[in-house]
Design a protein around this nucleic acid. Structure first.
Lengths: 255, 255
DNA sequence: AAATCACCTTGATCTGTGTCAAGGCCGCAC
DNA sequence: GTGCGGCCTTGACACAGATCAAGGTGATTT
């Protein structure tokens, strides 16, 4: 559907264990990721199992079909997860951000590819080290089940969107869902109260492939929503939502 | 999208504990469900936590939005899981059969509704009893994570289907996927070798709502596939696949 | 500041699938 | 057997969104 970034294997940053512990202790993602299942006192165990990696925008760091030797936990940035058809049609199944865990598949091959949207930082765990970690910290396995369950609920919502919603409803749903995750709000949160400013780090093409539409339809629909004052589009990577409730009405087909 | 079965709360069959153990021991679903994480010697524990229930075709036994007090494990029959939009548009997110576990959501409200397609038998566990069971048998929690991971993979495949495949590819994908589950094959497996006979207990309307299409498009597309000898349709509830490989080529867009 | 490039927007037209409508098939009730 | 009701098929037409095409915009390079 689009130009895809080339596959380049990122080199891990080599860090000494002591710094690793600091890294985990100060990790922005820890509070809302599976890692919060591990106590401060056991942080060294966690830290020594992980390798920190930085991925440049546009680089693919997981390839569908490859043997799944590693699991990843995103600590910064946004990645897109996608599947391709042989002729190049692409479906983005989700955007992963800080705290998201990749590679849940039990199967030994990745069922999706992943590419960095902006600069992504992540922790990589080998299959064997994660296995040991999970056996030693059952709370972490419980957290993983929670995470998987929540993703399943999100996946069902997305199926409803892809199977039954109009382009207008899809865009409204997408923006409303982003509005509910404070992570996606713009840092400079000024402006009148009740007004939300969203960051959209991905391109129109990514949004289209996530919503099962074309770039043109995404663009036209955003223009239309803007003309109806349901959103404002100060520039291509930001969206202002003056009234989230009104947008949510559109998202669920109620008008 | 269609007439939906009315909601009637099924009455549990009251069975004495001893019979319950027999029920679990002889359960067709046990071998391929989460229950196989529990040894024969602990079967009494499992059996006493479950209530067996029978649901008549067309009856809704889970309602989206209801507080999730129970979990269910299907032991016979086929159920459809679906989500509705306020105006009645419906997306079926999956068909659950023997061995499938419903209610994985961690949240306290069901994120989908469930309705029996044909006569469904299931075991119902209360939230609290399942919690205790999971705490006592960690292997069962591991199995649940496996199950959830596999469902996540299936959900991603379905997103690709709904977002990017043509009607023809959707039908081919649906039939090919069914062909891979021996559960869905017709009992009377006669006929030339390499020929698969599939049971389709659900209506065209269900298939349409599962594939994000209309009844008419499903019907027309099946007729077309039949005219191309990719399938045969002896009657509305059976499909014969003479050459699964050819159908799979169509399913992935490789025509 | 001009050129380049990637991305985005807008317009014109096309088409796959939806919608509307009519009739066929088949099992069930009487 | 006849009538009825639910489901399925087929045809004619409509339309939302895709495709094709032509600029526009803004960041980066030189």
């Amino acid at each position: 559907m689009t130009t895809h970034g080339q596959t380049i294997r990122p080199r891990p940053l080599v860090l000494d264990p002591a710094r690793n512990v600091q890294f985990c202790a100060n990790c922005d993602a820890r509070s809302h990721s599976v890692c919060n299942a591990i106590d401060d006192k056991d942080l060294a165990r966690l830290a020594s199992s992980a390798v920190q990696v930085k991925i440049e925008p546009g680089h693919t760091f997981v390839d569908e079909g490859d043997t799944a030797e590693s699991f990843r936990n995103i600590t910064a940035g946004t990645a897109k997860l996608f599947k391709l058809l042989p002729d190049g049609r692409r479906q983005i199944t989700g955007f992963a951000t800080s705290g998201d865990f990749l590679g849940l598949a039990v199967s030994h091959a990745y069922s999706f590819s992943a590419e960095a949207v902006d600069e992504v930082k992540l922790c990589r765990f080998s299959r064997s080290k994660l296995r040991i970690l999970l056996d030693d910290f059952p709370a972490m396995e419980k957290r993983l089940l929670e995470v998987a369950s929540n993703e399943l609920v999100a996946a069902q919502d997305q199926m409803l969107l892809l199977g039954r919603k109009t382009a207008r409803e899809r865009l409204a749903s997408f923006l409303a869902a982003r509005a509910h995750a404070p992570q996606h709000h713009c840092p400079a949160q000024a402006g009148p109260r009740g007004m939300l400013r969203l960051a959209l780090p991905m391109t129109r093409s990514d949004i289209a492939d996530y919503l099962g539409l074309t770039i043109e339809t995404v663009s036209r629909t955003l223009t239309k929503l803007k003309s109806e004052k349901l959103i404002d589009v100060p520039n291509a990577t930001e969206i202002i939502i003056p009234n989230l409730h009104a947008l949510e009405m559109v998202a669920s087909g109620g008008n």
